[in-house]
């Protein structure tokens, strides 16, 4: 996070508003370390394996289409905590869902979930 901020301030104007705007473009160019770890977890077949069901930009394998494509996530989940809940236990929003409850069933650790959330929120 600190590193991200440093990068940001190197590139950017200092006003808060433009900083937020630029965060998006920095993400497109290069993810924070946390988000990069999250991306690796999301794509790893033995970990998140999110691609099995969701199209994700930059996906390294053919994606499934059981779940919706993960795009515009800040728009769909302005509240990061809600996104975390969706990933931690998808049955909260839909008891019949086919999405695995990654946190509740300890498919991913708490830390790994944080990293995945960071990545997904950047999409």
């Amino acid at each position: 996070m600190k590193k991200t901020l440093t990068i940001l301030s190197t590139f950017l104007a200092t006003s808060l508003v433009s900083m937020m705007l630029v965060t998006t473009s920095v993400n497109a160019a290069g993810l924070s370390d946390t988000a990069k770890k999250g991306r690796d977890l999301a794509f790893n077949r033995k970990k998140g394996n999110c691609l099995a069901c969701h199209a994700i930009v930059g996906g390294v394998r053919p994606a499934g289409n059981i779940g919706p494509p993960l795009i515009a996530m800040k728009h769909r989940f302005p509240d990061k905590a809600k996104l975390r809940v969706q990933i931690w236990d998808s049955t909260v929003s839909n008891p019949e869902t086919s999405m695995p409850p990654f946190g509740r069933h300890e498919v991913l650790s708490e830390k790994e979930i944080d990293q995945v959330v960071e990545f997904i929120h950047s999409l």
């Binding site: 069901c53 053919p62 499934g64």
Partner: peptide, 22 residues
């Protein structure tokens, strides 16, 4: 299972869809 699926999940509601490349 840890991934929490029933047979009906994969071969019912989502049958015809793609799971990864399948």
């Amino acid at each position: 299972g840890q991934l929490n699926f029933s047979c009906a999940h994969c071969h019912g509601a989502t049958s015809g869809m793609m799971i990864g490349g399948n």
